[in-house]
């Protein structure tokens, strides 16, 4: 419905096209971008650059964050020490660190990837930790009464019990990472969708800006759907304990 309003406004010339591009113009721009590219870089290359960054940063964040979160959930001392630190830095927008990261790692791929790593890391630590501490005591008790050892309970009760929370964390993290990445690319990258939008903007190519936003939105939705499907596939028991 929004789309129809958008289309009508262009067709009837209500909206000023120099300010807000209409759908036909946007689609034309998108087509040009997809085939010839803009500033010699095609849409696919931008998308690929962005996806590569997010997969590396998010991936490492999950791989490191989950064990840390599990350890914090299992060990009271670790939790007591690191909880306040995590709580302290968690609310800071990852983008605030970007100047320091650029200073430390130089301009290039690394700062953005490290930033995404941190964004995912905090979320995954909290998620994994919550997954562990959220285990129903009666489940652990039942396992003990059935003769399971501590190790066995960890492996067979606490870990599977934490999985839903971990998956939810991954879904949250990938959303945060995607948005943050785009914002980071706006200010400090040559490739990627954010960079493409930034360049398009400096050349007053508003239709490319709007097209980029749509692509970002669509990819965001796709990433989310992938995570949802993965949840359905790997943890069908989620929320049905």
């Amino acid at each position: 419905m929004l789309f129809i309003i958008w289309l009508l406004s262009e067709a009837l010339g209500i909206a000023d096209p120099t300010f807000f591009p209409g759908p036909i113009e946007t689609i034309q721009g998108g087509w040009e971008l997809a085939t010839d590219g803009f500033q010699r870089v095609t849409l696919a290359e931008h998308v690929f650059a962005s996806l590569r960054r997010i997969l590396i940063g998010f991936g490492i964040g999950v791989v490191v964050g989950v064990p840390v979160g599990l350890a914090m959930g299992l060990n009271n001392t670790l939790r007591a020490i690191f909880d306040p630190l995590i709580e302290l830095f968690r609310p800071v927008p990852p983008l605030a660190f970007i100047p320091l990261l650029i200073l430390w790692f130089g301009i290039g791929e690394t700062p953005a990837v490290v930033m995404l790593f941190f964004a995912a890391f905090f979320i995954m630590v909290i998620a994994a930790r919550a997954g562990v501490t959220g285990v129903r005591l009666s489940k652990v008790h039942a396992a003990y009464s059935l003769g399971a050892s501590k190790q066995q309970i960890l492996r067979n009760v606490i870990l599977p019990n934490a999985l839903p929370e971990i998956f939810v964390g991954m879904r949250v993290a990938i959303g945060v990472c995607w948005g943050t990445l785009v914002a980071a690319e706006l200010v400090g990258a040559q490739t990627g969708l954010g960079a493409m939008i930034w360049t398009a903007r400096t050349f007053f190519r508003n239709e490319l800006v709007v097209f980029g936003i749509i692509i970002i939105g669509v990819i965001g939705v796709i990433l989310d759907l992938i995570m949802r499907k993965a949840e359905e596939r790997f943890i069908p028991w989620r929320g049905r304990g």
């Binding site: 959303g175 945060v176 785009v182 706006l186 980029g212 936003i213 970002i216 965001g220 939705v221």
Partner: peptide
């Protein structure tokens, strides 16, 4: 339906909208 869709869009992805004059 509109809610269902927008729910999935990462907000930060909409950020460049501030470049577009509305």
């Amino acid at each position: 339906p509109a809610f269902g869709f927008f729910r999935l869009v990462p907000v930060l992805g909409l950020l460049p909208l501030i470049f577009v004059r509305f």
